[in-house]
Structures are given as C-alpha cells and as structure tokens.
C-alpha cells in the first residue's frame, strides 16, 4: 500500500516539475520574442539626450517623449515611404488577385485543349527560385525605363504560381453541379466566377490576400534594386536609408520611432486576424 502511495506521490511531483519546466521554457522564449519589441518602443520614447547619456541602458524611462515620432515624420520622409508601401501593397495585391483568380478559374472550370500541359508547366515554375530570374527582370525593367516607377515595382510580382495552384485546388472542390446549374440559368462565366466561386472560396482568398500583404509590406530586395530615388522607397528601403543616411549622427531613438511606425500596421493586422493568419500560413506560407 505504501508502495502505491509512494508511486502516486512521485508521479505528482514529476507532474509539477514537468509543468514548471514547460512553462519556464515557454516564458523564456516569449521574453526573447517580445523583448526586441519592448526595446524598440522603449528606445523610441527616450529623448535623444537621455538615450545617449545612458552608458548602461535603462529598462524603463521616466520621461517619455513623442518628439522622436515627430522627427521620424518630419526629418526623414517616413510618411512618404509609408504611403508608397500602402500604394504598392494595395495595387500589387489587387492586381495579383485578379490575375490568379482568372487563371485558377480557367484551370479549374474551363475546358480547353492543352490544359494539363500548361498546368504542368505552371507547376514546374514553382521550383524556380526568384533569385535566378531577378537578374533578367532587373535588366528588363531597366531597359523599359521603368526604374523608379510604381509600374516597375509592381509588375514582376503580380503573379504567383503557388497561389494559382492553391486557389485552383480550392475552386475544384466546388461541385460541378453548381456550374451546370448556373449555366442552365444563363449565368455568364464571369458572373459565376465572382458571384459564386469567389464567395464560396473566400476563406482561401482571404488567406492569399493576407499572405500577399505581409509579403508586400516586407518586400526589400526588388524595391532596392529598382529604386534609388527616395521618392519611391518602400518602408524596408526607407529603414535601410534611415539607418545609413537619416537623422544625422546616430539618432537611435528617432530610428526606433520609425521602426515602431512601420511595424505597427502588420502587428495590428495580425492581432486582429491572428487565427486566420496562422491558419493561412500553415496552409500556404513559407519563410525560413
């Protein structure tokens, strides 16, 4: 009996120990994840003087200031970068959605000769890394005289083979009978696509939109290649620029204010739609 008691007790302690270790690990990683965010907000509200006076950085500040945020918008063109990115994100995403919805529709519902061959070719394009094609695209856009234009920024990223594939799979799950019924009722293909298929597949569409928005907001490589006029910088290039030439000598608090400002839109988006975004990424995202 006492044997049993001992085993029971041991099991209980083991459980408590396990729980503690588990939660400690999670909390530790949580701190590692969150701390940079805390640090950037903290640094952004320290005044230039007080930040530079701290040889040993302080973990709190007693005199928060918004001056850095004002600087971020007045001394460098943060507002411009911000606006550019919004335009870039919205236009790219909207155009891409149109292109991929049409393509997915053609692959999933329409009958034409050579469909399978074309689709196979499409799929094989998925294996091509963007690093390989970006060289020619750079030359192409330069030759077309589209450097430092929105057109040049946007054009190469308005198609995605992967998203066409994702959407096509989803479209195909809609029963054929619905299409036939619509045809019998005299619905045009276009109307059917936008009134029936798109609404039914709206979860996938939303997923793709979210993923594309994140991608656009964080785009760095292509914009860097194609723009050298700060008037067309996106936030990522803006940050790079601010880091190297902005604010005069090492105004880190102002830099951090800029960083906070450009991080906020996506974080807010994420906090609102975190379930959707996480579900979407686990279905169709790749990074890392």
């Amino acid at each position: 009996m006492s044997d049993y008691d001992q085993i029971s007790k041991k099991a209980r302690t083991a459980r408590i120990v396990r729980k503690t270790v588990t939660y400690s690990l999670l909390v530790l990683w949580g701190i590692i994840v969150l701390f940079p965010f805390y640090w950037m907000i903290l640094s952004s509200i320290k005044s230039y003087g007080s930040y530079n006076a701290e040889f040993t950085p302080k973990f709190i500040t007693t005199e928060p200031t918004m001056q850095n945020y004002i600087d971020a918008f007045t001394k460098v063109n943060l507002g411009r970068y911000f606006l550019n990115t919004i335009v870039f994100t919205v236009v790219t995403t909207a155009l891409m959605m149109l292109v991929i919805v049409f393509a997915a529709f053609a692959f999933s519902r329409l009958q034409f000769r050579g469909k399978n061959l074309v689709f196979t070719l499409f799929l094989s394009l998925m294996m091509i890394p963007s690093e390989l094609v970006i060289i020619t695209n750079f030359v192409t856009i330069t030759n077309w005289g589209l450097r430092n234009t929105f057109t040049g920024l946007i054009l190469p990223s308005v198609t995605s083979v992967f998203y066409i594939y994702l959407l096509k799979e989803n479209f195909e799950q809609i029963p054929d009978d619905l299409y036939k019924a619509a045809k019998v009722d005299g619905t045009s293909d276009m109307k059917y696509l936008f009134k029936v298929m798109v609404p039914i597949c709206s979860p996938t569409i939303v997923t793709v939109v979210i993923l594309k928005v994140i991608e656009c907001w964080n785009a760095y490589v292509w914009p860097r290649l194609i723009t050298d006029d700060p008037k067309y910088f996106l936030v990522s290039n803006g940050i790079s620029e601010i880091r190297e030439n902005g604010f005069g000598r090492e105004n880190i608090p102002a830099m951090m204010a800029a960083v906070v400002v450009i991080s906020i839109p996506l974080i807010v988006l994420f906090l609102i739609f975190h379930k959707k975004i996480m579900a979407g990424v686990s279905r169709g995202g790749t990074k890392g």
Binding site: Y4, I7, S8
Partner: peptide, 11 residues
C-alpha cells in the same frame, strides 16, 4: 484491497 485512486495509469 489496494487503493489505486492516485496511482498513475502505467502502474
């Protein structure tokens, strides 16, 4: 006659 109420499953 053994009280197994708190005994883990494996035991």
């Amino acid at each position: 006659d053994d009280d197994v109420t708190d005994l883990p499953a494996e035991n």
